[in-house]
Write a protein that binds this DNA or RNA. Structure first.
Lengths: 221, 221
DNA sequence: CATTGTGAACGGATTCACAGCC
DNA sequence: GGCTGTGAATCCGTTCACAATG
């Protein structure tokens, strides 16, 4: 099979396959079919097979996939075989909650440092980690070889913060501030914007009325 | 122009257009071009125009779009003209933080109730709202005509909770528990799964090594 | 003449259908 | 027989190019 860069949509689905395999393994299952993975994830069985086929042929015809080996392969593809260490920037309520929520045994990531700028919180502890002033970040980053950061600072400071992170060698950023940020080439930015998600949900709750309004709009033209 | 159901990807972009228009309006701007919207949002100018064209022709050729009227139209399309009231289910740390984070003056939504099951938190106050026991939800829901809920309960309880919500007339759910949930037809479910987002980010931080591993996998076949 | 609105071209992702294999 | 792997067909979203127009 020829090597081809896997499309982004496939990459976004891999972690869910991994989680599903983890779950099945905990139930002492040893094999799984694309059909079952389909049921657990909501993606179609063909899609499951096509996704996995991006990286090679891991299944056995007439049988399915060996859970433990498929799991190991996905872990390697994503890059989770070395335990990933992330920084949290912004130790407010949201940051604290997310840190506790995300850093669990099955998340394959650990928290390498928590940073803030406010003297109100610097020095306090979260999950056994001292909150440090952001100026300490550069040397800790080199020390721990951290490449990933979650950003939960106020919107007004987010741009400045991501530039600082990028300048210091962070290459992947998960941003929760509700603003559009610019990052230099080579830095991968992903936004999680709860307000936007919530708003787009609203669209679906009044289908009839919305449809009527849209028909009015369109007929005006 | 004929009426056609707008694709989901367009709907997901509308809230960002809205936020951008809000921002421009605060800067006392009165008109905007697709070019400018492109710069602010990161989407291409053609895409901005195509997206808006799903609903009608709102611009003026050679000029651009009137900000205030375009804003009103997008608000109407999404359905944000009636102030949307949402419930928060799960008053743990994450729920509390999200409530404060999301419910801001510009988010077009307000918090209609906070529910939990634990007697440790029921009765306490968040943002001026008493946390209520979940059994009180049905009559408050009818009273306030709430259709939307944010779910921040532990994974183990999430399925039960969404079934309860769906059974009581909630039609849109924003779920933060890291599990795949089943909802009845007619209920719109959106997941925000921070752990999965974080994991898919990891894929992009070691491009060289990953590429090598993928080549090995593919050549094995 | 700047900018919108839109059919046509393109590209990428999903689904289909079935060949290949255990 | 059952399930994977995959080329072909289809669908859908984005980009292109330009006609339309205030």
């Amino acid at each position: 099979m020829p090597y081809r860069e896997a499309p982004g949509v496939v990459i976004k689905r891999l972690p869910l396959y991994l989680r599903t395999l983890d779950k099945l393994e905990q139930r002492k299952k040893e094999k799984v079919t694309s059909q079952e993975l389909s049921g657990e994830t909501g993606f179609s069985a063909e899609q499951v097979r096509k996704d996995l086929a991006c990286f090679g042929a891991f299944g056995t015809r007439g049988y399915g996939y060996e859970i433990s080996s498929l799991k190991e392969i996905i872990i390697r593809i994503i890059g989770l075989h070395q335990r990933i260490r992330v920084f949290l920037i912004g130790a407010g309520q949201l940051g604290t909650a997310l840190a506790k929520h995300v850093i669990t045994k099955n998340s394959y990531v650990s928290l390498a440092g928590i940073f803030d700028i406010s003297s109100n919180v610097v020095g306090k502890e979260i999950m056994g980690q001292q909150i440090r002033h952001i100026s300490e970040l550069p040397h800790l980053m080199l020390w721990h070889e951290v490449k990933v950061a979650m950003v939960t600072v106020p919107s007004s400071e987010a741009q400045e913060v991501v530039e600082f992170l990028a300048g210091n060698g962070i290459t992947a950023i998960l941003n929760f501030a509700p603003v559009s940020l610019k990052v230099p080439r080579g830095v991968y930015l992903q936004n999680i914007d709860v307000a936007l998600e919530l708003q787009s949900l609203i669209y679906y709750i009044f289908p009839e009325e919305r449809r009527k309004y849209q028909e009015v709009l369109c007929s005006r033209v």
